[in-house]
C-alpha cells in the first residue's frame, strides 16, 4: 500500500507527463459537464426569468418545487434517467443508456433546478430595482426578461458556476446511467471511485487534483472576466 506522499508524487507525475488515460477521462468529464451546463442554462435561465417576472396561478408552488429540486439526490436522478432510457423505458429507442448522452441528460436534470432557482432569485432582486423604469419606458414582458438577463449576466455567471460545480462533482447519476465503462463513459468522479476501490490511489489522487484545479481555474477565470467587464463598462 503506497503512502499518501508516494501517491501524491505519482499523481503529479501522471499529470505532468500528460498520461493518456488521465487526459481522456478529464476531457470526457469536461465535455459531459459543460454540455450539461449549457443545456441547463438554456432551460434554467429563461425558466428562472419567467418565474421572476411573470405572475400566474401556481407560481409560488412552482418556485418552492424548483428550490426543492436543487437538493435532488443524484442517485434518484440517475435511477429515473436509467428507467427512462432503459430498453423497456419510454425513450429506450434512443439507446442512450451507457453513453455520454445519458450522462449529459442526467447532469442536465440535476443542474437545471440550481440554475433556475439561483437565476430567479437574482433576477427577482433586479426586477425590484428595474420594474418601474422598464414599464415607463414601454417594455413588455419579453423586453423585461431580456433586459434582466443581460444586466444580471455577471451574477448569473455565478449561478452557472454553481451548476458546473455540481455537474463536475456528481458521481451517483453518471455511474448509474453511464456505467463507468473504460474509454466510453468513465469520467473523473467515477474513475476516482473505481480506482480508490481498487487501491490504485495515484490515478485516483491525480484525478482528484485535476478536478480541484479545474474548479479553481474556472472560478478564477469567471471571477476575473466578471471583474474586468464590470470595471470596464457596467458598474
Amino acid at each position: 500500500m503506497p503512502t499518501l506522499s508516494d501517491s501524491f508524487l505519482t499523481a503529479l507525475g501522471l499529470i505532468v507527463s500528460g498520461d493518456a488515460d488521465l487526459i481522456e477521462i478529464v476531457a470526457l468529464s469536461l465535455r459531459v459537464s459543460l454540455t450539461a451546463v449549457l443545456l441547463a442554462a438554456l432551460i434554467g435561465l429563461p425558466l428562472g426569468a419567467v418565474l421572476a417576472v411573470v405572475r400566474f396561478p401556481g407560481r409560488g408552488l412552482l418556485i418552492v418545487v424548483v428550490n426543492a429540486l436543487m437538493g435532488l439526490p443524484p442517485v434518484v436522478v440517475g435511477l429515473v434517467v436509467y428507467l427512462t432510457f432503459s430498453a423497456s423505458g419510454p425513450l429506450g429507442v434512443l439507446e442512450f443508456l451507457y453513453t455520454p448522452a445519458a450522462m449529459i441528460v442526467a447532469q442536465t436534470v440535476l443542474v437545471t433546478p440550481i440554475i433556475a432557482a439561483l437565476a430567479r432569485s437574482t433576477l427577482a432582486d433586479l426586477l425590484g430595482e428595474y420594474d418601474e423604469t422598464l414599464r415607463v419606458l414601454g417594455a413588455n414582458r419579453f423586453d423585461v426578461v431580456a433586459t434582466l438577463l443581460w444586466d444580471g449576466r455577471f451574477s448569473l455567471a455565478t449561478a452557472l458556476l454553481a451548476g458546473l460545480g455540481r455537474a463536475l462533482a456528481e458521481v451517483g447519476a453518471v455511474m448509474l446511467v453511464g456505467g463507468n465503462i473504460d474509454h466510453v463513459t468513465r469520467v473523473m468522479t467515477t474513475a476516482i471511485a473505481l480506482e480508490t476501490s481498487r487501491g490504485a490511489l495515484p490515478l485516483a489522487l491525480g484525478l482528484g487534483i485535476v478536478l480541484l484545479l479545474i474548479t479553481l481555474v474556472l472560478n478564477a477565470v469567471v471571477l476575473g472576466v466578471r471583474n474586468r467587464m464590470e470595471a470596464h463598462a457596467h458598474a
Binding site: T133, L134, L137, G138, D143, A233
Partner: peptide, 26 residues
C-alpha cells in the same frame, strides 16, 4: 415619459442606456 426621483439607470454605458430606451420605443 416619467423620470423618477431616484432614476434607475441600467448597468450599461450612457449610450447603451439610450440605445436600450430607443429599442423599447420600437
Amino acid at each position: 415619459g416619467l423620470v423618477l426621483q431616484r432614476p434607475v439607470l441600467l448597468r450599461r454605458s450612457v449610450a447603451a442606456n439610450l440605445r436600450h430606451a430607443l429599442a423599447l420605443a420600437r
